[in-house]
Nucleic acid binder design. Sequence first.
DNA 1: GGCAAGATGATAGACGTCTTTCAAAAAAAG
DNA 2: CTTTTTTTGAAAGACGTCTATCATCTTGCC
Lengths: 378, 378
Amino acid sequence: MQGRLPTLSDVARRAGVSYATVDRVVNDRGGVADKSVKRVREAIDELGYVRNVAAANLSQSRTYRFAAIIPTGTNQFFQQLRAILEAERIRLLADRINLRIEGIAAFDGEALCERLDMLARTGIDGVALVGTDDDIVARKIAELRAAGIAVLTLVSDAPNAPRDAYIGIDNRVAGQTAGRLIGLCHGGSGGRVLPIVGALSAPDHAERLEGMRETVTALYPDLAIAPVIIGRDEHEIVESKLRPIFENSHDITAVYSVGGGNAGLLRVLRALPADQNRPIVVLHDIVPQSREALENGVIDAIIDQRPEVEIANALNCLRSIADRRPPDVADPILPAVYFKENLPPPQGRETDAHPADAPSSDGARPASKSRVLKEIDQ
Amino acid sequence: MQGRLPTLSDVARRAGVSYATVDRVVNDRGGVADKSVKRVREAIDELGYVRNVAAANLSQSRTYRFAAIIPTGTNQFFQQLRAILEAERIRLLADRINLRIEGIAAFDGEALCERLDMLARTGIDGVALVGTDDDIVARKIAELRAAGIAVLTLVSDAPNAPRDAYIGIDNRVAGQTAGRLIGLCHGGSGGRVLPIVGALSAPDHAERLEGMRETVTALYPDLAIAPVIIGRDEHEIVESKLRPIFENSHDITAVYSVGGGNAGLLRVLRALPADQNRPIVVLHDIVPQSREALENGVIDAIIDQRPEVEIANALNCLRSIADRRPPDVADPILPAVYFKENLPPPQGRETDAHPADAPSSDGARPASKSRVLKEIDQ
DNA sequence: GGCAAGATGATAGACGTCTTTCAAAAAAAG
DNA sequence: CTTTTTTTGAAAGACGTCTATCATCTTGCC
């Protein structure tokens, strides 16, 4: 309504050329004299023309075809990522966005490449994948991009690959934040911080550890850092390495676990004798296990990468690229710090899946009100 | 492409009625026999029809007309909110969303009502405003909604008004989080927490204070809570009330400021003698002042309501209502905890994005250049 | 049986873009 | 100059929905 926005016809009139010529320019069809191109570009700038994406998509009866490739397995974080994607998938259909969710063995570069090939053959506009430090993957990514497919890395970047963007947190910052939190919690007294990682060869783990170490040594000189426990993200290993430490030395005042396999850590913590001082415990990512531990006071804080935000950003980014708009890289994702009090509600949403879609007469907006209130007010 | 989604014509065919009848049903035009309505609804369900919003908007050459009404004045938080909205406004034009940003004197219910009337006369689809506890505002909101205008409250709710949704944080949770953080920072020792509020009559201030009190008294019995300072959000008042406290008693171990006027607090903190133990300081909302204080170690943590998220959610919500879709209330907004380490970059984004964005051959997506956005001949 | 009211069908134009086709004009090459 | 090539114009159909108009077919009712 009021004040319609300029269309391509307006641009054509302004540039003194035909619609066809404008179309050739904006859609890169070639065969246009330089001076015409210039006139069209000027007209676009002067009028502030913005292509009507809705109309464009409609005309092509375009459905965006995106894919997300997520490692399978028992990792709770990735399971959660899948669940979020699945919920999004359904809502997205209303916007003509078709999202394929593919599972794949973790850290298997070859399998990833095969899957990417398969997707490319099927026809696809963009893909998000969990990056690995792997040459053949980097080459495959370059190949896809050359074929006009947008590629994002999610959660973990692919160092040397020419992906369109990395959507995820800065893991060093996450580690620094953990360090700060742990330092603060000592209230000026000394102590000893025990770090637990899955593997030092995993870039995200290494970065988190390094970030924590940086902050603690720089700002809290009274804190010592104990030798790093390497638990391969497997709870039995973590448990067996941890138990003797807590039995023999009672000077651990804080634990920072950067990766998975926290079930073992939690078992050890729960088994601590009541008279022993409980350490401050900080870990990563809200999953059912860590959530429950935080709620019950077994741990003190969770640093979360907010997978919902990552996914939302990734999809926006894919869409922008597919629409040939400047990719709208939203605010960088920062690790969020959660305590028991500000822990987000379990499933994020989809508790009751919007049943009523307009039984009423009122014409304006059926049923929406009560539901919104309920969800927001919690 | 591949496998097109069902259209209204498909629904008509399936239901064994004409397109016109389907249209009457889905657009609530009335005059349709019950059994036909039922058949259409069934067909929609069976086919999994989802209305093509792009096509619908196109057909109406619809531009969404939304407005945001933000208090003016020197309040840094609201200035920031305006800046974020302004940045959004421009990006939104590409989606045919026209956002008016209106300024208005803070807490002036009558002025707010007048402005709302004016907007309603101009014609508008939805409005977001900062709620106040005010009867005439509540009535005006009811009026607007009856006229089919979506109304959201932002940042602060309007208790008795029938708004479509409240988009903002739960202030009690924010206070509880502050309490937890302060408690943790004492590392088991005792202490004395000094709360500073603007006014106890402001619901958000009162709730935050109450939340903090709850958590501290329940979980950290060694902590005392000093008498509340009421500073009317004005830095001179805060300073004058605070200075004697810090001069006379040296037992304040933490400060929790729930509102504005923090310049006074910061001055007092900076003036503390070096030999005096600095208290743990937690305040609300990242603004230039608080950011700088956090960076310089004058304060320890900021609890932020993430205005960008609030705005993004508000706009999504307005759009969903305008599209007559189930409002897509994203995850509830939780207060975020920031330390120096995970403080988000100043302007929210646009600092550098991702440099590796393909200087390469590409040919696919011509970067749309700078342009002045302007409307055509009314 | 006839008549009004109600329900349904058929159809067409609009929205802004993409795509294609065909003809015409302008520029470059011979 | 003609011939070829490059550049431009004109137009029409498609996408899925909304809106409107007018004609027709069912009802119920007296």
